[in-house]
Design a protein around this nucleic acid. Sequence first.
DNA 1: CTTGACAAGTGTACCGCGTACACCTAGCGT
DNA 2: ACGCTAGGTGTACGCGGTACACTTGTCAAG
Lengths: 243, 243
Amino acid sequence: MTQQLEATRRTPLNRERVLRAAVALADDVGFESLSMRRLAEELGVVPMALYKHVANKAELLDGMVASLIGEIDPPVPDADWKSTVRLRVLSARRALQLHPWARQAIESRTTKTAAVLDYMESFAGMFLAGGFSADLTHHVMHAIGGRMWGFTQELFDDQSRPTAESTAEAPPEAQAAMMQQMAERYPNIVAIATATAHDESSVVGHGCDDQFEFEFALDLLLDGFERLHEQGWSSQQAKLDRR
Amino acid sequence: MTQQLEATRRTPLNRERVLRAAVALADDVGFESLSMRRLAEELGVVPMALYKHVANKAELLDGMVASLIGEIDPPVPDADWKSTVRLRVLSARRALQLHPWARQAIESRTTKTAAVLDYMESFAGMFLAGGFSADLTHHVMHAIGGRMWGFTQELFDDQSRPTAESTAEAPPEAQAAMMQQMAERYPNIVAIATATAHDESSVVGHGCDDQFEFEFALDLLLDGFERLHEQGWSSQQAKLDRR
DNA sequence: CTTGACAAGTGTACCGCGTACACCTAGCGT
DNA sequence: ACGCTAGGTGTACGCGGTACACTTGTCAAG
C-alpha cells in the first residue's frame, strides 16, 4: 500500500516540476488558456498546492520566462560583435518560436527578474566587447528593443484577414468579390502584399517569409549600429546636430 | 416626473458614448482595470446594457483603438516621404502617450479592424508615394513594425528596478550596498545606464530620455530605408546576395 | 386611442479565474 | 512518544465576461 502511494504520488512536486509542466501546458494550449487550475489538474493536484512552490501566477510566468532564457544559446566566443549579436538574436528567436506563449509572457511581465537582467547584461556585453561606447550601447539596446528577444509585433500575423472567419466558410466564389473590394479600399496593402507572393495562395499576408522579414529588420539595425560606431557617434553630438 | 426621468437618464446611451466612456475610464484606471462591469457602473447602467451597443469586450477594445487612431494626424501633404513618415509616427506616439492603455489594447487584439487596416493602408501609401517599390515597402512595413504605432517595448520601462518594492522602503543606506552588488553582478548594465545619466537620481534606468531613444531607433530605420531605396534594393537580389 | 413591435435597459445566473485561510497528514529529529 | 514542518487539501470569496429571459419606454400603424 505504501508502495501504491509512492506509485501514485511519486516525487513530491517541486518548483522545477511545476515550471516544466507549466511550460509544457502553455506549449500545448497557449498562453491565455494557461491557468493555475488547469496546471494543477495536469499535475494531478489541487490548485492551491501550486502555491507551495510559486508565490503566485506572476512568479510562475517569471519562472517560465527564465527557463526559456535558458534555452537561448550563449554568445559564441571569439567572433566579431556583429555576428555574435546576430547569432544570439536568431537563437532567441528559435527559442521563442518553440514556445509561442513566450512573447505574451514577456510582454505581460514588467518587473525584471534576475534571469532577464542576466540576459540583458550579457547582451550589452556583446556590444561593449565589440568596442562600443557605453553611450552608444545604451541607445542601441533601446533600439533593438523587443527584437533582442527574437520577436517583433508581426503586422500580418496569423491568418488575420480582415473578416477573419469569413475566409473559412465564405461562399465559394464570393472570395473573389471580396478581394475586389479589398483592392479598391486597400490598394496599397494589396500591392505590397502581392509584391512578394511566392505561392499562389489567397489574398493578403500569405506567402510572407517571416524569417526573412525578421532578418531584414535586424540587419538594417545592425548595419545602422555599425555605421554609427565607425563614426564615433555620441548622444551628445547627436543632440547638438539635431538642432 | 417624466422630466426627472429625462434628467437622470438623458441620452439613451449609444455606441459612441460607450466608447468615449471606455476611453476615459481606461485613461483613468488603466488597461487591466477596465472591465465591462466597471464601465457600466461609470455609465450608471447595468453591465449587460453595454452588450446592446458592443458585441463583447473584444469589440469594445477594437472600438477604442479605432477612436485612438482617429487622434493620429493625417499625413502632411507635399512633403518628402521621410519627414511625412517621421511626423506621422511621432504623432501616433503622442496619441499613445495620452492613452497609456493603448499599447496593451493594440497588442491584445490580433484581428485587424477596418480602422487599423485604414491606418496601415495610408502608412504604406506614404512609402509608395515616395517612390518605393511595393517590394521594398512590404519589408519596410515589417521592419518598422510596432514602431509605426509610436511605441516600442521599452527595456527600462517604469521604475523596474530589479527588486521593485525594495527601493521604496529600503533601509536608508542599504541602497548603496545594493548598488554595489548591482555593479558587481551587472557591470555592463550599470555602465550603459549611467553613461547617459543626466540627473543624479538613483541606479539603473533613470534619467533616460524616452523620446530620444524612440527617435534614435526610428531615424536609424528611416536612414536604412533611404539607403536601400537609393540603391534600388529588391528582396530577390537580397536573397541572392545572402548566400 | 389602442395595439403591438422593437430597441434599450434589467436581473439573475453560470462558469472560470486567482488566491486567502484554515485544515489535515506524513515523516522526521528530538 | 511528541510535536514541528513541508506538502497537499477543501472551502470560500470576489471579480471577470456574458447567456438568457424579462420589463419598459417609444412610436407607428390600425
